[in-house]
Design a protein around this nucleic acid. Structure first.
Length: 281
DNA sequence: CTCCTGTCCTGCCGGC
DNA sequence: TGCCGGCAGGACAGGA
C-alpha cells in the first residue's frame, strides 16, 4: 500500500544510496509483473551511471547519463531493498529485479503480489508516458490548492472519496490517506465530489497536503510488509486517525478533539472507507 | 466524458 | 491442527 509518502521515502533513500552510482548489471528474475518488464532493460542500463531520481504520484523514476531510464511502481506490496557494498545478499522469495551496482552493492525490487511494474522511459519524454500524461497535480507542490481541487471536482457526481483516489484529480493519494484527509477536513466520504467547493475544497486541499507531509515526516507509513528502502527491516506503523480503526473511538485530530463516537467502516466502490459520521458531514 | 465493476496476485487471518 | 474463504488494494479494461 505504498502511497505518495512511502514512495517519497523510497526515492529519497535511493537518492542517498545510488545517485552517481554505476549500474554493472540488471537481473530480471521474474519479468512478468503487472506488465512485462522490457527484455532489453538490462542492456539499456548496463554500464550506465545514475544521474537523477524523481517521484511523480506513486511512481519513482530513475534516469541514467545516456538519457534512458525507467519508471517503477511499487503496486501494493512492492519493496525496494538497498544492500550496501560488502554486505551479503540473502535472496528472498519474490526478489523480481536485482540491480548490481558497480561498487558491489545491490538494489532489489521485491513484490509478493506482483502488482508493481518497471518500464523503460527516457528523461526527455517521461512526462508524456501513459501513466503521467493525464495525471493530476502533485499535492505538495504549488500547483495544488483549494481552487485547483474545486475545479477538478466540479461536475463529478461520484463520492468525494472515490474522486480523491482518481489520480487525475490529485496525484499520489491512495485509500489510507484519502480516508485520513477526509477525516481531517471533517468531510463525509459519501458526499458528491461536485458538492465539495469553496471553503470545503480549500480545507480538503490543506488536509491532503498536511496528511501527506506528516506521513513523510514520520518516515512513510504502511500497515504490512513494508520495509524501509535503506534496507532496514520493519515497517512504519503510522498513527492513523481513522484508517483500520473501525469500532474504535474517534479521538479527533490536532485542535479538534474526538467526539467519543465510534469509527465506522463502510464500503465504497468495493473499497473500505473508515470515517466518523459525527465529525464528517 | 463519467461512473462502476471486475480483474490481477499472494499472504494473512478468522472460522470451522 | 489444517484447510478454505475472504480480504487487502492501484491501475486499468470494458460496459453502461
Amino acid at each position: 500500500m505504498p502511497e505518495l509518502p512511502e514512495v517519497e521515502i523510497v526515492k529519497r533513500a535511493l537518492e542517498t544510496a545510488a545517485l552517481g552510482a554505476g549500474i554493472s548489471d540488471v537481473r530480471l528474475n521474474r519479468p512478468d509483473l503487472r506488465f512485462p518488464i522490457p527484455p532489453d532493460l538490462p542492456d539499456i542500463l548496463r554500464g550506465q551511471v545514475i544521474s537523477s531520481f524523481l517521484r511523480r504520484g506513486k511512481y519513482v523514476l530513475c534516469f541514467v547519463e545516456s538519457g534512458a531510464g525507467f519508471v517503477l511502481h511499487l503496486g501494493m506490496s512492492g519493496v525496494v531493498k538497498i544492500i550496501p557494498a560488502g554486505e551479503a545478499y540473502v535472496p528472498r522469495k519474490h526478489d523480481h529485479v536485482v540491480f548490481m551496482m558497480a561498487d558491489g552493492g545491490m538494489i532489489v525490487f521485491n513484490d509478493p503480489r506482483r502488482f508493481g511494474f518497471l518500464d523503460l522511459v527516457g528523461v526527455e519524454d517521461w512526462a508524456t508516458y501513459k501513466s503521467f500524461a493525464a495525471m493530476g497535480p502533485e499535492p505538495l507542490s504549488n500547483d495544488f490548492n483549494g481552487p485547483v481541487l474545486a475545479a477538478a471536482l466540479a461536475g463529478r457526481k461520484a463520492p468525494i472519496k472515490a474522486a480523491l483516489l482518481d489520480q487525475k484529480v490529485v496525484a499520489g493519494v491512495g485509500n489510507i490517506y484519502a480516508c485520513e484527509a477526509l477525516y481531517m477536513a471533517g468531510i463525509s466520504p459519501q458526499r458528491a465530489a461536485r458538492d465539495v467547493q469553496g471553503a470545503d475544497a480549500e480545507g480538503l486541499a490543506v488536509a491532503v497536503r498536511e496528511v501527506l507531509a506528516l506521513a513523510i515526516e514520520s518516515g512513510g507509513s504502511s500497515l504490512k510488509d513494508y520495509y524501509h528502502a535503506d534496507g532496514s527491516l520493519g515497517y512504519f506503523q503510522h498513527h492513523f486517525s481513522v484508517y483500520d480503526r473501525a469500532g474504535e473511538v474517534c479521538r479527533g485530530h490536532g485542535a479538534r478533539g474526538g467526539c467519543g463516537k465510534v469509527i465506522e467502516r463502510i464500503v465504497q466502490s468495493g473499497r473500505s472507507t473508515f470515517c466518523c459520521s459525527s465529525c464528517q458531514r
